[in-house]
Computed example of a mutant assay.
Amino acid sequence: MRGVWVSVLFVTAAAVMSFNTGCGGSEKSLPQHVPENTGQAGATAVVAVPDKSEPAAVAVVGRAVKAATDGNPARVERAKVNRLRMKGTVMGPNGPVPSRRLVEAVWPDRLAQTDEFGSDSGFGKTLVRLRRPVLWVGRIAEGKAVPVEFADGKAPEAAIAAESVGRHWMAVLVPLADSRTVVFDAKKLLLNGQPADVIRAAAPGTPVFTLWFDEKSGLLLQVGFSQVEPGNTKPTDKVFTLRDHRATDGLMVPGRIEYRQSALPLPLEEWAVEGWEFPERIEEGGFDPPK
């Protein structure tokens, strides 16, 4: 059978993976020592997570929530159910591939992603369906769903769930409003030459995130973390940059999102947001494997 390259969110180090088309929760405690990315290339370090949040970091989060909600923190609660549409590129084996992405998510355990690639790419449509602890990843080929067969389904499921916190949920601050999240190590640093408030954050089952907030506006500008992906033994440093924030239904959200890995020279994903939505509910069937 013919091997194909398919963009599969979270699963591989280069945001694309190769597979053969013929191949057939309870709450967790916080880890005490976790690989953490400082936002600098090659700067992975092991950091100890404190038992409780530190006041200086809590103050940074409070300012960020106030800035993003125009002083109405309850608006973050609405973001626990959201829909995101984007248009951009995903790095393939021969360069950037034009793509459209739809993400539907319900905090903390459901996420459905659909990627549709340009007709000239030959990649078609790929799907990620997560309803913890069940994960389905695959593509649509000739009208049929073709799954990726994982040797160990638990590791990819845990990896996707953990990365989704940094990749998707931090942009709307939902993890920072969760009482289980510990924030700490507040400091003042420069991001692209501009003053930033920087904190670390850890939630159950996730890496330690380094969060960079604009000192002037309070808005979240960058999310960095290190993650040991399934099949690897060393952490991968990941950075998501959030730009062009705009108000949507009373919440300031990014209008552009870029994903990089510190070991690679070019962005793996570049997205222009077409729209954020915060519906009251999302149909439960959308998180299940396609039939």
Rank of each mutant, 00 (worst) to 15 (best):
F19G: 01
R83E: 14
A158F: 05
F225A: 10
W136S: 03
R256P: 01
A112R: 12
H168A: 04
H245Q: 13
E116I: 08
A162D: 07
G39S: 10
G143M: 03
C23G: 02
G153D: 11
T114N: 11
G88F: 08
A247Y: 02
A177Q: 15
G143F: 01
Q113C: 06
V81S: 12
M1S: 06
L264W: 12
F19K: 02
A141T: 00
N192Q: 12
R75K: 15
L84D: 14
I140C: 00
W212R: 04
K187C: 06
D109L: 12
M91W: 05
V58C: 07
L220Q: 14
V183C: 03
A159P: 01
E284H: 03
V103Q: 08
E27Q: 11
L221G: 07
S262T: 14
R260C: 06
V6R: 00
R132L: 13
R131V: 03
A201F: 07
D288I: 03
L135C: 06
S262Q: 12
V134S: 09
E215F: 01
T44M: 07
A247H: 07
R85H: 12
V228R: 08
D115R: 02
V81Y: 11
V47R: 11
G285I: 13
L220N: 11
D249Q: 13
E284A: 11
M91E: 11
W5M: 02
V4C: 00
L264A: 13
V6Q: 00
T114Q: 14
R281Y: 04
K188E: 11
R131G: 02
G122F: 11
Y259M: 08
